[in-house]
Simulated assay, not measured.
Amino acid sequence: MLEKFQRSNMKILTSFEKYVKELNAQNLTWSPVHTEKFWKENVKKFEENDFLLIRKLAEILKSNSNQNVAVACYDLGEFCRFHPFGKVVLEQLNAKQEIMRQARNDDQQIRENALLSLQKIMLHNWQV
């Protein structure tokens, strides 16, 4: 009986809910919610509340956590890659400039993800 109760009260988080939880905790990790598949399936959800989650990602670019910055660079690149107006949104938030700044970071993981993100932003420009 207890086992049945525990199962019925456990909430299974969707991948998007897991992403929001990570982002709100400012604890981004290389997990399945930071993949091409995730972004293809969920990119439109990031439009909610005037791109609030994208704004939060852009703010993380200024943080002191190397892992958070690296993952945020990756995610912003994927957002730009899959959202039809991703480049415009990133430019309005000055995220592109911050990613460019991170491309000169001393941390190799940040630098690599920032450069990959910039490539996606530039490719998006050519594909429009």
Results as ranks from 00 to 15, higher is better:
Ser63Gly: 15
Ser31Asn: 15
Phe85Asn: 10
His34Tyr: 02
Glu78Lys: 15
Gln127Leu: 13
Met100Cys: 01
Phe5Thr: 08
Ala103Phe: 04
Pro32Gly: 07
Gln108Ser: 14
Asn24Glu: 14
Gln26Trp: 04
Leu57Val: 02
Gln6Pro: 00
Ala95Glu: 02
Gln97Trp: 01
Asn9Gln: 14
Glu41Ala: 15
Glu17Tyr: 13
Lys11Thr: 14
Glu59Arg: 09
Arg104Thr: 04
Trp39Ala: 09
Ile12Gly: 02
Lys11Arg: 15
Leu123Gln: 15
Val71Thr: 09
Phe85Thr: 06
Leu116Thr: 04
Cys80Ser: 12
Val71Gly: 05
Leu123Lys: 14
Ala70Arg: 00
His34Asn: 06
Asn105Pro: 00
Gln119Cys: 12
Cys73Ser: 01
Phe38Met: 06
Pro84Ser: 07
His124Arg: 14
Asn68Trp: 11
Ala114Asp: 00
Asp50Ala: 10
Ala103Thr: 02
Leu13Gly: 00
Trp39Tyr: 11
Gln119His: 09
Leu76Ser: 04
Asn42Ser: 04
Lys40Ala: 11
Glu98Met: 14
Val71Glu: 01
Ser31Phe: 05
His83Phe: 03
Gln108Lys: 12
Gly77Val: 02
Ala58Arg: 00
Val43Pro: 09
Arg55Asn: 12
Val20Ser: 04
Glu3Lys: 05
Leu61Glu: 00
Glu17Val: 09
Asn64Val: 03
Asn42Gly: 07
Gln102Gly: 01
Phe46Tyr: 07
Lys21Leu: 13
Leu61Asn: 00
Val43Glu: 05
Asp107Glu: 10
Ala95Gln: 01
Arg55Gly: 11
Lys62Ile: 07
Asn66Ile: 09
Ile110Leu: 02
Trp30Gly: 11
Gln92Pro: 02
Asp50His: 12
Gln109Asn: 11
Glu91Gly: 05
Phe85Val: 05
Ala72Tyr: 02
Lys44His: 13
Asn49Glu: 13
Ile60Phe: 01
Phe16Gln: 06
Phe38Lys: 09
Asp107Tyr: 02
Gly77Ile: 03
His83Gly: 07
Leu61Phe: 02
Gly77Ser: 07
Cys80Pro: 01
Ile60Asn: 00
Ile60Leu: 08
Val33Phe: 11
Ile110Gly: 00
Ile60Ser: 00
Thr35Arg: 06
Gln109Asp: 09
Tyr74Ser: 14
Ile110Trp: 00
Tyr74Met: 14
His83Lys: 05
Phe79Ser: 01
Glu98Ala: 12
Gln127Arg: 12
Asn64Ala: 06
Trp39Thr: 08
Leu123Cys: 04
His83Tyr: 08
Leu123Glu: 15
Ala114Met: 04
Leu13Val: 03
Asn64Ser: 09
Asn64Gly: 08
Gln127Trp: 09
Gln102Asp: 02
Phe51Gln: 07
